[in-house]
Design a binder for these strands. Structure first.
Lengths: 342, 342
DNA sequence: TTGAAAGCGCTAACAA
DNA sequence: TTGTTAGCGCTTTCAA
């Protein structure tokens, strides 16, 4: 079933069919239009998007590259991207770099061969030259979640410094004095650096000094995260609070605390990063920093597509607000009003 | 950058370049081959997949249609699909019907216009005529998770009757006498019917009768699931166990039990469906039925692509095994060996 | 061993 | 208002 078949059946030229298909009714008799639409219906004709894309150099497809499909946070982001793309008439290709720089490069190449109109990417952070060259040649790309070190990069991120700050500040306000941060060791990723920075700022703002920082670092790919945490907890036996910078880490922390028989929040308070469906059902219910994942996806898709339609340059740094959700694990009295950061 | 540019630079015809690109070295001098490969490299030439697809009527893209991006279970499935597609040289398009039959039809149409080679779908169940016609015209499609009522449909599902059976049987073996099932009211979806069937079979096999069935039905889209559960729990005040048929329902059940101050497992035992990252960190740790989501994705992609390569017909019904993971919520002694179903 | 030319299904400049 | 024609970038038949 091609446009030629429709043209034949309706006794018009392919051009006419094409025009009508694309809503170009201006110069068309109502009569021929009806005839063509009729033929389209009768033949159940579906235009070939490949041919259309080849001709018009535009596919109405955008690509999204995630770096981790195991963390449910990304489902939410994906949902936002997908909904928005659909609303704006785009389809979506997806891939998963799995934090691997080689794969990231390979997939980027594949997206381009497939002529996607643009891509949304949670960068591994390990391919700076790639990001730079993409930006240099004005390839339509929006970086999400992680900041890319390039003035001209279009970013949609959450304010990680602030998120960490309000988490740690909250712990300190409720009287904790020995607050540790638990994070992945990953030199490439801005999110960790920024959450560490927020942690630090909160301590300093509350009268502590650099020497009060307690940093517990984990290997992201290791299978022994819980064991590492247990070791670190034993090493820093005097800590009275943990700020965990990622929802997967938080679960490991909870496991470790349980194994050591440490009471939360009586002995150790916990605040986690990433609000999740399960946070409020943990024991005790978990205080978290909510990141607006759905909104991040929406915004990224929206910005990218606006970029494509050639509107003027987007604000390069689109920063979303994190939010503290107070439950019992931080030692705040449940039902208490949520504290505002200083 | 087109194939013509490469041809020019290497002083050969487009044909020759094309042949070399596709590994068709048989009839080519090593010398020209090197010259061409050199030119490709120098120009950083990326073949246009649209043109290739248009010509060859094959895109090496498969589509996946999910019906719900909110449930983390699907991330796992997606990961399996994506990994497998990548391994086999395919790219992936994704969309989300959100359980909406209209959207499902629309997306299916879009996939076909984009000439994807085949699709993997978790069907809403509401478009039987669509599924039937797709199957009739031999369109390459694999249905996952939910069974489609058509002998010629290619399915990858988990054995839901068995999953429910081993869950409920386990509860009964540990002495529970009043076991309720908690599920969505959804006439279209095989999974619910089958889990209900497994529940029933387990009761009957243990000497109970039809009159002992206690069915708690919830509206999937409602915001008041917890309230409904509370109402139903009050109505059936004598139940001593709940078999929850979905991980999202399980969380609501836990919330309801907590609100009613019912002790788990002392007063009410709970077994949930879908093993999740968080199940073991709940209070008490949750006994669940594990579904092999990653494997389901792998298998679906694998079967689809095999279908595409024209190998003989797949086994139409590919059934995976669920598994009981015993923790404290069901009242079994932790550390006890896992019970086998009769 | 290599190349010329036709054509995949569509759009758009130009002509009628 | 409608049609003719060329061409998007690639593959493939057929010829050299």
């Amino acid at each position: 079933m091609t446009i030629a078949d429709v043209a034949n059946r309706a006794n018009v030229s392919k051009t006419t069919v094409s025009r009508i298909l694309n809503g170009n009714y201006a110069h068309t008799t109502e009569q021929t239009r009806d005839r063509v639409l009729q033929a389209i219906k009768e033949l159940d004709y579906r235009p070939n998007a490949l041919a259309k894309g080849l001709k018009s150099m535009k596919t109405n497809v955008v690509g999204i590259m995630l770096s981790n499909l195991k963390n449910p946070f990304w489902s939410t982001v994906l949902e936002g991207v997908e909904d928005t793309c659909h609303d704006l008439g785009y389809n979506l290709m997806i891939c998963n770099s799995d934090e691997d720089e080689q794969l990231e490069e390979e997939y980027m190449r594949e997206f381009r061969m497939r002529q996607v109109d643009g891509v949304i990417i949670n960068p591994t952070g390990k391919n700076s030259p790639l990001y730079d060259s993409l930006i240099m040649e004005q390839y339509p790309i929006v970086f999400i979640n992680r900041r890319v070190q390039n003035e001209n990069a279009s970013n949609v991120i959450v304010d990680n410094v602030k998120g960490a700050y309000i988490a740690v500040n909250h712990l300190l306000r409720y009287g904790r004095r020995k607050v540790a941060i638990c994070m992945y060791r990953n030199a490439y990723v801005s999110t960790w650096k920024e959450r560490l920075e927020g942690y630090k700022q909160a301590l300093l703002a509350n009268g502590f000094s650099e020497s009060d920082l307690i940093i517990m670092e984990l290997e992201e790919k290791a299978d022994t995260k819980k064991e590492s945490i247990i070791r670190l907890l034993k090493k820093h036996a005097d800590i009275d609070a943990i700020f965990s910078t990622n929802n997967m880490i938080t679960l490991e922390v909870i496991g470790a605390l349980r194994e050591l028989n440490l009471q939360v929040p009586a002995q150790i308070a916990v605040v986690g990063y990433d609000e999740t469906v399960w946070a409020k059902y943990l024991d005790p219910p978990l205080t978290t920093i909510r990141q607006p994942g759905y909104q991040m996806g929406q915004r990224a898709a929206h910005n990218l597509i606006e970029m494509l339609s050639g509107k003027q340059r987007q604000q390069a740094m689109d920063m979303l607000e994190p939010e503290l959700i107070v439950r019992a694990s931080c030692g705040a009295i449940p039902g208490d009003t949520v504290l505002q950061p200083n």
